[in-house]
Simulated scan of single mutants.
Amino acid sequence: MSVQVRPLGDKDFFPWLGLFEGYSEFYKSDLTDEKALRVWSWIIDKNHDLDGAVAVDDNGDFVGFTLYRAVPRTLSGDVGLFVDDLFVAPNARDAGTGRALMDFAKEYAKAHNYRSLQWVTAADNKTAQKLYDEVGTRTSWVTYEAEV
């Protein structure tokens, strides 16, 4: 199976939604219609920071997606690209889809003169970490979060 990665477009909502449902299920996050529509509105709003791309297989089926946004990096005085989400459908894993999505994000960053590409994944997501260890460098930073 080969995949082509391209930016998400206005007419991609329903095929993307199927993947976003799988992504939400993978991370055991409840997905409501309201949440899905809000995220989609961010993706297609050219004035919003969030952007995304989709991996499409030979049959035209959506088999993966990534969502990313520009982030200022104060200590280096430049801008980087942060990959918020990356998901590959189970039937398209181990076929280079995740790598193709990461390569797309890297090329997007280069095209926009962003100086770095960063992302996080769950500590127990060993499958993703195998790819991420190949395409990037594991950092020593510890991530925290707090509800507000």
Rank of each mutant, 00 (worst) to 15 (best):
F14Q: 09
T66C: 13
D61T: 02
F65N: 00
W42Q: 09
L131P: 09
M102T: 01
T139G: 10
A95S: 07
R38D: 08
L31M: 10
G64Q: 05
A128D: 01
L67D: 00
T139E: 08
D85R: 10
D30T: 13
M1E: 02
K46P: 13
P72L: 11
A123S: 14
E34A: 15
V88W: 06
V5D: 01
A146R: 10
R69K: 14
V148D: 07
R69N: 05
V135C: 09
D57W: 13
S24W: 08
N59Q: 14
S24C: 09
K46L: 08
T139Y: 09
L17I: 02
D94F: 14
K35C: 03
R6D: 01
G98D: 04
F14M: 04
N91K: 07
F87E: 00
V63A: 07
A89H: 10
D85T: 08
A146D: 03
L50F: 11
D84Y: 14
S116I: 04
D12T: 11
T137Y: 12
L19P: 06
F14C: 00
L19V: 04
K46N: 06
P15F: 11
M1R: 13
K106H: 07
F26A: 01
D51M: 12
L19W: 12
E134N: 07
R93P: 13
K11H: 11
I43V: 14
R115G: 15
Q129F: 10
R115V: 03
A109E: 04
N59R: 14
G136A: 15
D12P: 11
G60T: 03
A109P: 12
G136T: 03
K126Q: 10
V63W: 08
W141T: 02
